[in-house]
Design a binder for these strands. Structure first.
Length: 877
DNA sequence: TCTGCCACGC
DNA sequence: GACGTACGTGGCAGAC
């Protein structure tokens, strides 16, 4: 077997990790960011390098042999922050658990240990990889030794081979030392020759190769000043070179044999991860080694029901329904369990379906059920003719409301978070992916019984927290009622004109063929246009178009780049067109056809009610919230969405500027409030204020800019984002935002308050008490903090708007019942509601839909709703 | 099976 | 001074 030694500069990596990551805490208040980063890096190295031998070297103590020659060595360095020092013991412990040899040697630095071992290993025919954050180490590069230096972050590593060093600096690895000798190194307080920087040092070394040769050939140095400087500071150059030189003969006591890597002690690593709160790493470990933590579950009694009887039911029940497939619309029910004061009961869907007693209980509003995912439960049962009522709690939604960041995958994770007795995660119980297996009835009934029991028992615990947070109403009066409405919408589905889609598909295919032919001709060869990699080669290598932007894997071929290239080559236009049509074809024609129910010609999306961080819904299988509208070509897709009954119409109503109205209200900004009260065009108004002009003087370009700024405010984009969308410089964009905030001082103040609130409470809230926690608000990492600040400003706006339309949906649904309408609500697309209705109800809809939407909540500005209708979704514009 | 790129909506 | 910058879903390519 190939021998491969990895040598890691422990101090350097720990420092890097510490400064690259925000100051994470575990639940015991210990800082863990450096340990976390270190662990990430270790995992990556072990995975990618698969070393046979590995060692982590640390610096020992403050003074080294270098201080003997130069006592100011590394002087002036900032003291290690205590938040970092306290993490070193954990790093050491972690290395022990990983089974990785670590070593430190008094009087020597980690560099010297690495230099010495790498030399020994080279002589022993090892392949060697050195990992550090310190470029000094690159002097060790050789044919056998590659030096990896961390770039931004910690897991991103730049590899220095002798070739790479030559390319980058024009030097051989050993000359790195000479360079340091000449230019010094401020971070280590190595002096170098005063006045000699990187440029001069490189130039000198090109000519003289080493410091020694340079000093012997001083006469040949061009430039009188430079020559004098070098002459004067000869000794400094020699000293500096000496200081920068890594010794390869440190008196180390560790042998190569001792660095052999024999694998980690899993139990210890799991234990450490748990202590440190590294849950994501724990999960990874679980997948990897299939040793998900030992779960000691409580004993549970469960009756596998042979005959359904009244004795199984009570007033208060936990009711769990298991479906394993993602798409619950036509998936099978694995089993159901009920938990109450009489015990736990397991039954099959077929039993429930055939039982009048069960149906009676299910539809009895007074028999309370605590469930996990009400919508899914209702949909699944309604397919089988069972009408579920009396849902008085939903653990899934409750968990989302308590913290939307818990993308609650399963009940076990929620139970854990609530300190409830442990449950087996579904992934461990059933297995995942291709290995998924439903166990026998004995095991299955117990697993499901535990879940039902957990529902019953978690309910009071979570209600408690919800009440403390003043969020109980949000769950009971908003999310749970909405869940029932969404269940209806999903089950109802939307009719699709399949023939029309297929016809469009055929036409598109022909046009795509033509465009493809044009592209191949212009390119002079065939290639896969859908491959950014291949496309990049054609555009930027073969056709030599200028490269404006790169991605980390190659050339960027995104639309904004292509648009800039459009005038330079005819092929670009064709490619853009190809992309546009290709998207329609693959996503909206083929994609949609794939999910149409063949019996009914309907699509049944699923709204995810517990996913987004702002409180919005999302939609999948198919996603009906991103059907094209902006470009006419794509908008035609909407012609395929039709009413499910003959002669009915599609009725669509949308809020006008709901987010900006919400902002006007929350910020209580005088100008903004007045503008909405006067029903002004808000973008024009913004342009007037930002550019200090009269209404008549607002040009279309001013309005466009104002609109983009408003857009930015609503979505919390950065000055960079704004500059991209307007095609202006970042500075100008920042200036725009600044002008905007000066024009709307109320908004300015609101922005400050939001950030302040996030810092103080750790979260921000919407009008209806929805929360979003933003721990990064205190990050020392500029990006993370800026992002957190924008989140703090934007979430109450977007989230409150989401609250409002959810309220409107509930009100509208009630109103439809009250008015005894046949009208059906079909979709919600963030700020609009889409219905299908019989023509005779059109008149009343034009009255009540805007009415219910506009009065969903009372703000200090009016809400405004526009509506439209027609025979297809396309026509409802 | 996973990741990156790209593109659609709000 | 560089960092990499609303939120979602889905399709395709390419590496494993």
């Amino acid at each position: 077997m190939e021998k491969k030694l990895v040598l890691i500069d422990g101090n350097s990596i720990a420092y890097r990790a510490f400064f690259a990551l925000p100051l994470l805490n575990n639940d015991k208040g210990i800082h863990t960011n450096a340990v976390y980063g270190f662990t990430m890096m270790l995992n990556k190295i072990l995975e990618e390098e698969k070393p046979s031998h590995i060692l982590v070297a640390f610096d020992a103590g403050k003074t080294t042999f270098r201080h003997a020659t130069f006592k100011e060595y590394k002087g002036g360095r900032q003291k290690t922050p205590p938040e970092l020092s306290e993490q070193f013991p954990f790093i050491r412990e972690l290395l022990d658990a990983f089974g990785i040899t670590r070593y430190e040697l008094p009087n020597y630095e980690a560099d010297d240990i690495i230099g010495t071992l790498s030399l020994q290993a080279e002589q022993d025919n090892f392949e060697i990889k050195v990992i550090s954050g310190d470029k000094d180490l690159t002097q060790l590069a050789s044919t056998a030794t590659t030096v990896g230096i961390t770039k931004k972050g910690i897991t991103d590593i730049e590899l220095y081979t002798p070739e790479h060093i030559r390319e980058k600096y024009g030097l051989a690895p050993q000359q790195i030392i000479d360079m340091k000798g000449l230019m010094g190194d401020a971070s280590d307080n190595i002096p170098g020759i005063p006045g000699v920087g990187e440029k001069t040092a490189l130039k000198l070394l090109q000519q003289f190769n080493t410091v020694e040769i340079l000093l012997q050939s001083l006469d040949e140095v061009s430039g009188k000043k430079l020559k004098e400087k070098i002459e004067e500071h000869q000794d400094l150059a020699v000293l500096s070179k000496q200081l920068a030189t890594i010794t390869r003969e440190a008196p180390i006591e560790v042998t190569l044999e001792e660095t052999e890597y024999k694998g980690m002690d899993l139990t210890k690593v799991v234990e450490m991860y748990k202590d440190l709160g590294f849950n994501s790493l724990l999960d990874k470990l679980g997948d990897l080694a299939d040793i998900s933590e030992e779960i000691v579950q409580e004993e549970i009694q469960v009756e596998v029901v042979s005959e359904i009887s009244e004795a199984m039911f009570a007033e208060e029940n936990g009711f769990f329904l298991e479906i394993l497939e993602d798409n619950y619309h036509q998936a099978g029910i694995i089993g159901m369990t009920i938990s109450n004061k009489h015990g736990q009961f397991y039954l099959k869907a077929e039993q429930a379906e055939a039982s009048a007693i069960f149906k009676e209980w299910a539809s009895d509003e007074t028999k309370k059920k605590a469930v996990y995912d009400a919508k899914k439960t209702i949909v699944a049962l309604s397919k089988r003719g069972i009408d579920l009522k009396g849902i008085d709690f939903d653990i899934f939604l409750a968990s989302y409301i308590l913290d939307p960041a818990d993308a609650a995958e399963d009940l076990a994770a929620i139970a854990k978070k609530q300190n409830y007795s442990p449950l087996m995660p579904d992934e461990s119980f059933y297995g995942k992916g291709a290995k998924r297996l439903i166990p026998g009835e004995m095991e299955l009934s117990e697993h499901l019984a535990r879940k039902a029991k957990a529902l019953l028992e978690l309910k009071p615990i979570m209600i408690d927290t919800l009440e403390q947070n003043e969020q109980y109403g949000l769950l009971m009066d908003l999310e749970i009622p909405l869940s029932i409405i969404l269940a209806k919408m999903e089950t109802q589905g939307i009719k699709v004109d399949v023939e029309r889609l297929k016809q469009s598909g055929k036409e598109l295919a022909m046009r795509l063929n033509e465009i493809e032919a044009n592209i191949f001709e212009a390119a002079g060869e065939c290639f896969n246009i859908n491959s950014p990699k291949q496309l990049g080669v054609i555009l930027f290598e073969k056709l030599q178009l200028p490269v404006y932007k790169k991605t980390k894997t190659g050339y960027s071929t995104s639309a904004d780049v292509l648009e800039r290239l459009e005038s330079q080559h005819e092929i670009v236009r064709e490619i853009l067109h190809y992309r546009q049509l290709g998207k329609l074809q693959s996503t909206y024609i083929e994609g949609l056809l794939k999910v149409v129910n063949a019996d009914s010609d309907k699509v049944h999306t699923r709204f995810n009610q517990a996913l987004t961080q702002t409180g919005r819904l999302s939609s999948t299988d198919p996603n009906l919230q991103n059907i094209p509208i902006r470009l006419e070509e794509g908008r035609k897709i909407r012609q395929a969405f039709i009413p499910s009954e003959k002669d009915w119409i599609i009725f669509a109503a949308d809020y006008s500027q709901i987010e900006l109205r919400v902002l006007a209200h929350i910020a209580n900004d005088e100008g903004l409030v007045e503008a909405f009260r006067a029903d002004m065009d808000i973008h024009t108004k913004t342009a007037m204020d930002v550019f200090h002009v009269q209404k008549e003087e607002v040009t279309s370009n001013m309005r466009r800019h104002a609109k983009a700024v408003n857009f930015g405010i609503v979505y919390g984009i950065s000055d960079y984002g704004l500059s991209q969308s307007l095609g202006i410089s970042r500075k100008e964009a920042a200036q725009f935002i600044d002008n905007y905030l000066k024009s709307f001082p109320g908004v300015q103040e609101y922005m400050h308050e939001s950030i302040h609130e996030a810092k103080q409470k750790g979260y921000v809230s919407t009008l209806l008490q929805r929360r979003r926690y933003i721990p990064e608000i205190t990050s020392r990492n500029f990006n993370q903090r800026s992002f957190a600040e924008r989140t703090a400003m934007n979430t109450p706006i977007q989230g409150s708007a989401a609250d409002i339309i959810k309220l409107a949906m509930i009100n509208m649904s009630e109103r439809i019942e009250e008015e005894n309408l046949k009208t059906r609500m079909l979709l919600q697309v963030h700020d609009e509601l889409i219905f299908e209705a019989p023509p005779e109800e059109l008149e009343i809809l034009m009255k009540i839909v805007p009415e219910e939407m506009e009065r969903a909540i009372e703000l200090n500005v009016p809400l405004k709703v526009d509506y439209a209708y027609g025979p297809t979704w396309f026509d409802a514009k």
